[in-house]
Design a protein around this nucleic acid. Structure first.
Lengths: 214, 214
DNA sequence: CCTTCTCGGATACCGGCACTATCCAAACAT
DNA sequence: ATGTTTGGATAGTGCCGGTATCCGAGAAGG
């Protein structure tokens, strides 16, 4: 298919597709001649993933480029490749290690890891962006006066672990390796809005159950 | 305290504080004379909450203003007040009701509500922003080729409900009504990054458990 | 063959948004 | 008295995702 058709089938304007091509989020089509390029179903799939990353996941274009580069890097093993893709994601700045709250948060987070026996996560604790994000989030909560400690975090950690088991079971259902990596990214990025929405719905439900509409 | 001190203790520049005052995110201080205004601890708390909303929650300034207006509206009952605050949050556009995927997603979501007996959520299904977000997220997933149906969603919904129970238990520990509402907003906005980070950490852990570092 | 349309590529531009820099006159501080 | 600090008003900045415009090279139709 040509650019116009790609645009129509994806619902993304040609101008924006050109922009993504320019930014390296989308591989160029097969050049037929100087003025025509041919795109295929893979391009369409990738374009939809790009849109999902940017619109749903609110991932900056530059970050999306990195994530996708890792998704495409077949020289890496699965965990690494997946990890590399996910590690390119977070948009969280390095927390200030000298800050008091940050150190306290770090301590509580590590305690959670320990009590759950998350040895892998622990061994990566200094480099994993997810770990960094968690420390930053907990530090913010504490700074606002909410004493989020390991005790409070544990039940949430257990719940999210069970969610992760579901995620990976779902990823397993994919056949090809490439699809698995892509699915894992989708699971990380796109399940999150769904989880967040479910969380809020559940809050509404539970709140109405407890207090009615007083 | 005066503006400069408020700035110092919050870590927010005076220019930015002035901006928030202008935008109505922060109540003006007590005017001492034409060139001096006095701020107190409440201002500091509110300022920190504003920063958390904007920086951590990535809530647009205009949206934050609405949320905070509801938090401050003492004329509302708790559930309503809380709901009003949370409902002002979402940044999701109305999904296109005529879209095929959207309708399918809507159906699956309603099925989840029904099977969980979330009668409140169901009765609000047409107006709750969380419901709308969920439909939009599921529609996106389906458009990307992931067949997220009620069957797959149910376990996640159960997990998030348990998280919501923890949330509300935590909110209950607050003493004043105003604090409870503020805490509920914090729970909705600030727990989410923490949950997301826990989710990703759990994914890393589970992934490493299953595949090692192959 | 010639006209007219559409193609892809390059470049400049736009609009929103979260700030930020500058200016000002009033009022402290010393 | 005089330099500094205050809060308020206003205009400007930088980023970033996206768009509008222009171009010359083919494709399509008669």
């Amino acid at each position: 298919m040509r650019l116009a058709e790609l645009s129509e089938r994806s619902g993304v304007s040609t101008a924006t597709i050109k922009y993504y091509l320019r930014e390296g989020l989308l591989a160029p089509g097969r050049q037929v001649n100087t003025t025509t390029a041919e795109y295929d179903e893979d391009h369409l799939r990738r374009l939809r993933l790009v849109r999902a990353l940017i619109q749903v996941g609110r991932v900056p274009v530059a970050t999306a480029r990195e994530v996708l580069a890792h998704v495409d890097d077949e020289s890496l093993g699965r965990t690494i490749r997946l990890g590399a893709a996910l590690w390119a994601l977070p948009q969280v700045p390095e927390p200030d290690g000298s800050d008091e709250e940050v150190r306290a948060a770090h301590h509580e987070v590590d305690q959670v890891m320990e009590r759950l026996g998350w040895s892998n996560a622990r061994s990566l604790s200094s480099i994993s962006p997810a770990h960094r994000s968690l420390v930053a989030a907990v530090a913010t909560l504490r700074r606002l006066g909410y004493a989020w400690d390991a005790e409070l975090m544990l039940p949430y950690a257990r719940l999210m672990h069970r969610a992760a088991v579901h995620d990976l079971d779902f990823v397993e259902t994919r056949s090809s390796e490439a699809e698995k990596v892509e699915t894992a990214v989708a699971a990380a990025i796109l399940f999150e809005p769904a989880l967040r929405a479910l969380h809020r719905l559940a809050q509404e439900e539970e709140s109405a159950r407890r207090y009615g509409f007083e």
